[in-house]
Amino acid sequence: MEVDKGKGEAEETRKVAEADRDTVTLKSSDGKLFEVSKEAAARLSTVLAGMIAGGSIDDNGTDLKQIGSEALENVVDYCNKHANSIPSAALISSSISFNTAPFKEPEEWERKFVDRLSHDALFDLVEAANFLGMERLLDVTCHKISEMMKGKSPDQIREVFNIKNDYTKEELEEIRQELAWAFYDD
């Protein structure tokens, strides 16, 4: 019983120490450790915010088994950059403002951040952002992918997304003729 009590106290002490730290440690699926600002993690990720609030952060590295080290590194990098960014003028409402979309265009640094990513890294980051409940990062990465698809033919989109065509030739031709405006500059 004494031993158990000691263990419990140690656990409490560890939790208190963890609560005092201003960073959290995240462990990728391949065992790499990354430190990220606790404030930024809680602000940008609903999942990490929940874990921090619930005390389920492990100071030896919280296991994120679904996220590889490259994607997690990008997540942490994004959190750090976001913490240091200054809101652009575009995000400050002007004197004449009308009905605006809830989606805010990526800021310059966010564009640069996703532009440098390889195809695989970008797709991994979308999944990581989704898993961690990072709405803004999901916005920015999905926006980037949608931009990549602009002006592309169905064949080219299939290639980007690695999707098999399950239409017959006749079906495709019929729809193409019906909606010719979407394929040619008529």
Partner: peptide, 28 residues
């Protein structure tokens, strides 16, 4: 990509370029 993420990508297609969605619908 999982379907829910494909949906998120397609949602961000520019609304002033409706041909994008038509071409995407012909992917599969």
């Amino acid at each position: 990509l999982p379907e829910e993420l494909v949906e998120e990508v397609l949602l961000r297609f520019p609304p002033d370029d409706p041909a994008c969605l038509v071409r995407a619908a012909l992917v599969c």
